[in-house]
Design a protein around this nucleic acid. Structure first.
Length: 410
RNA sequence: GGAGAGGUGCCGGAGCGGUUGAACGGGCGCGACUGGAAAUCGCGUAACGGGGGUUGACCUCGUUCGGGGGUUCGAAUCCCCCCCUCUCCGCCA
């Protein structure tokens, strides 16, 4: 959510910034300002009336006389009218405000921009399904749950847990507290992180219980400090969340249908940080550096892409993707992603800190993928494959319990 | 799932429907006392919103006692719904 005071003070700057995302984003600003103007007028009238009521009842000991009672009743009736109107207009205004996406950072590029390529890309070879064989069981997954579901079997299960353990240990060394959060959440958490109303069609919902399945633990990690005022000394707060993620992939029909690249359910270790406003950009670079370091440890060739403004989600001001080279597809594909969401989520979730001077301020939040397990397994299989179809796994994973070599299919 | 108790400020904890933003205690901050400290005493200690303004160090008004409705001239106090916590019974990975 944007700061409405900022929009009032400098609507042109907000319109211009949102305009970089596309023509529709800026249009809401005018509707918002008009509703806000109406709201403030009603609000002023309501408060004047309340002040009058307070003056009349202040110091009162006993019941009023019949004449007084009549006057007071008239005031109260008028107050109810104004109050109802105020509530209605405020709801409309707040809906417009909530629909506005975050202001993009000045240095978020207009076009996707490749910043660098690291590692030996360009190899081609068998894809992950060929290499995994029955260790990725798509047919039975589909029989059980439908398309885009899979059983992970045998050694790949140890590979998954090695990846998770590796990531969590590495992040603990970087000052992140490990967290296993709930994956079923209330609407507020999705609204607060900007996934609602933005990406409603991607989210699984359990209507009988009014709960949603999270598409990323970012939702639960951001909400960890919902409605709290944090101590300045506690910042930055860094969390490494492990959770299963659920995505409907509506609108992706026919896209990435082979294998486990795009599935409805996968596991992920996610980084999430709460920082003082001035620290956001530096923290964002730090998250990107950790993502790159993990890819390097895992010997996965990758490139870093600064994402175009019109491709940012509602909450991100700036975003980097790390794309891994996948020999099975002969191209780079998104593996991890890190966003600086500035104060957008913090404002929606009511997360503030108390600075040394002055009133509480909203913190800035950032998120980044440490390991998206399914896609990382794809990258490891395809990049680690040997001529005979076996797969050599990197040492850091072996140290965490992965087999040195996944044998070829016989 | 059944039965009961309860949710008040940073914490504990009062609160006959009418000067209750909220007693009292603790914590914290500032000051006094002290060679220094403890103890003691004094003062202070919220968030959000509207308006004004030397535009965020000020003034003013309003709101807030889990959340939302309702009754009333007036609600922390009465009624309804929801959320959460605790206890007992049942069930259960």
């Amino acid at each position: 959510m944007l700061d409405i005071q900022l929009i009032r003070r400098d609507p042109d700057a907000v319109r211009a910034a949102l305009g970089r995302r596309g023509p529709t984003a800026a249009a809401g600003v005018d509707r918002l300002l008009e509703l806000d103007q109406r709201w403030r007028e009603i609000r002023t009238a309501l408060e004047e009336l309340q002040a009058e009521q307070n003056r009349a009842s202040k110091g009162r000991k006993g019941p009023p006389t019949p004449e007084e009672r009549e006057q007071l009743a008239a005031l109260a009736a008028r107050g109810r009218e104004l109050s109802d109107e105020e509530t209605a207009v405020r709801a409309q205004r707040d809906a417009e405000l909530a629909a506005l996406p975050n202001l993009p950072a000045d240095d978020a590029p207009t076009e996707d921009t490749v910043l660098r390529e690291v590692g030996n890309s360009g190899a081609t070879g068998r894809d992950h399904l060929e290499l995994a064989g029955p260790r990725i069981d798509m047919e039975r997954g589909a029989r059980l749950s439908g398309s885009r579901f899979a059983y992970l079997r045998g050694d790949l299960v140890f590979l998954e847990f090695a990846l998770v353990g590796f990531a969590l240990q590495k992040l603990r060394g970087e000052g992140f507290e490990p967290v296993v959060p709930p994956v079923l959440v209330r609407e507020r958490a999705l609204y607060g992180t900007g996934f609602l109303p933005d990406t409603e069609q991607q989210i699984y919902r359990l209507p009988d219980d009014d709960l949603y399945l999270v598409g990323t633990s970012e939702v639960a990690l951001a909400s960890l400090h919902e409605d709290e005022i944090l101590a300045q000394a506690d910042l930055p707060l860094r969390y490494a969340g492990f959770s299963t993620c659920f995505r409907r992939e509506a609108g992706a029909a026919g896209k990435d249908t082979r294998g486990i690249f795009r599935v409805h359910q996968f596991d992920k270790v996610e980084m999430f940080c709460f920082v003082e406003p001035g620290q956001g950009p530096a923290e964002h670079e730090r998250l990107l550096a950790i993502e790159e370091s993990i890819l390097t440890d895992l010997e996965i060739p990758y490139r870093v892409v600064a994402i175009a403004v019109d491709d940012l989600g509602a909450s991100a001001a700036k975003k980097y993707d790390c794309e891994a080279w996948l020999p099975g597809q002969g191209r780079y594909r998104e593996l991890t992603s890190t966003s600086n969401t500035t104060d957008y989520q913090a404002r929606r979730l009511g997360i503030r800190y108390r600075p040394a001077e002055g009133r509480p301020e909203h913190v800035h939040t950032l998120n980044g993928t440490a390991v998206a397990v399914g896609r990382t397994i794809i990258a490891l299989l395809e990049n680690g494959q040997q001529d005979d179809g076996s797969v050599r796994l990197p040492a850091p994973l072996v140290a965490c319990g992965a087999p040195e070599v996944l044998p070829a299919l016989s």
